[in-house]
Design a protein around this nucleic acid. Structure first.
Ligand SMILES: [Mn+2]
Ligand SMILES: [Mn+2]
Ligand SMILES: [Mn+2]
Ligand SMILES: [Mn+2]
Lengths: 218, 218
DNA sequence: AAATATATTTAGACCAGACTAAAAAAATGA
DNA sequence: TCATTTTTTTAGTCTGGTCTAAATATATTT
């Protein structure tokens, strides 16, 4: 039905649509896919013919309902495979994305549903991102950056913005992981550093760290 | 390193090399891959440049040591994924090949080794074919066709030649499966049909059935 | 409102991997 | 052996997906 390249375009456009506003620009797509704007124009015209996005010259693109469904399904596959790699094959957070990028394109009517069942219908992937169900439904996780919390607020760690290895190792050392409860003990105005408590341990973290951790308030 | 198309050529040439003699003909490859001879010539020349096979015009090709290794590794991946699909996701024999054809091309240094461990280092795939280890080593299963057994001989079912759905369903109904012990009770000369016993049950099978079941004598 | 800068599209090319049609080599057999 | 058939290769074309360079549209300054 759709080629690997086409699927990657749809997924990328979907993600850009969430972050920014409505219309997704040619250059934005090119940057994300590490390709050239001219290549994007070509592909976007082809995908418009296939009715999965609407495209207005010089203006940008938006996914159609159909395009959205396809994109969400790829994301569903990506995230379920990530869960498999971490839960069953014991990979760590930062190692799974690249492999999932390949696995998400495996074509089969039933495979992903069976995988989902095998995994016990997980609701989030190893990075705290929600996993769409068979119908593409999922609750947007209300995550915000830890840096946005005020003194005294609590949050549950649901993900990381970056997943650079050094950063993940830093977190591991302090037992900060998905599901960990984090309390802001104090916050410095001049450098935005904060003292937090995790699992009974208190320590200081810099602004940079706090801006890379997503938490869910409850 | 190698594209999906290249990997499929290597795998196919490997299989043809086992069945027939030494040199693999252009037409044989074309037939297996359901492509045209001219396409094969092109690809085979490219693969010769890449040192994975040797090619003599009008004569045929043979895999080099390197080509052999690559082919065996793809087969290793294919068969391990087949085990995963059957054992963990509860697919039946005849449903897994197509999906494994895709999964065998996933690229990762560690993935297949972790999968192998997760599966408990299986030695054979769901069709009774041996699974090469990390070094490409495997024992050739000494299988022969059930039709070649004489009256009174016993064998253990290790695989099927064809895996057409109807055939597999026929087998299921008679509880003939991998590992089942089959005894030849009698054999008719005029039509090569035979009476066999499986799990205490006796019944007649035609020549066609007997020629599609592989057994191992012990 | 021009002039300039930036974003986007078009035109033309390339590569991988396939195809058809024609040419050439090898095998077959009268 | 020489004519015919079969196999294989070559030549030329196509499609998907990419690229560079040039053209054109939009945005930003002056
Ligand atoms: Mn990912
Ligand atoms: Mn993820
Ligand atoms: Mn198979
Ligand atoms: Mn198999």
């Amino acid at each position: 039905m759709f080629t690997l390249a086409e699927e990657n375009y749809l997924k990328t456009i979907y993600h850009l649509q969430q972050n920014v506003g409505v219309e997704v620009s040619t250059n934005a797509i090119a940057e994300k896919l590490e390709t050239k704007a001219s290549s994007v124009t070509d592909m976007v015209q082809k995908l418009a013919d296939k009715q999965v996005l609407s495209y207005v010259k010089y203006k940008g693109t938006t996914l159609t309902e159909k395009g959205n469904e396809i994109a969400v399904n790829i994301i569903r596959k990506h995230r379920l495979w990530e869960v498999f790699l971490v839960e069953k094959l014991h990979y760590s957070w930062d190692e799974v994305h690249e492999i999932a990028e390949q696995l998400e394109h495996i074509k089969s009517e039933s495979l992903i549903d069976r995988l989902e069942e095998f995994l016990g219908f997980p609701k989030v992937d190893p990075h705290g991102d929600p996993i769409p169900d068979q119908n593409g439904q999922f609750k947007k996780v209300e995550k915000q950056l830890l840096s946005q919390l005020a003194k005294g607020q609590k949050g549950i760690c649901v993900g990381m913005k970056e997943s650079e290895r050094n950063f993940l190792r830093y977190l591991d050392k302090r037992s900060i992981a998905i599901e960990a409860e984090i309390t802001v003990i104090s916050k410095e105005d001049f450098d935005d550093s904060m003292q937090i408590e995790v699992n009974g341990n208190r320590f200081f973290i810099s602004k940079k760290i706090a801006e890379n951790l997503y938490v869910k308030i409850f």
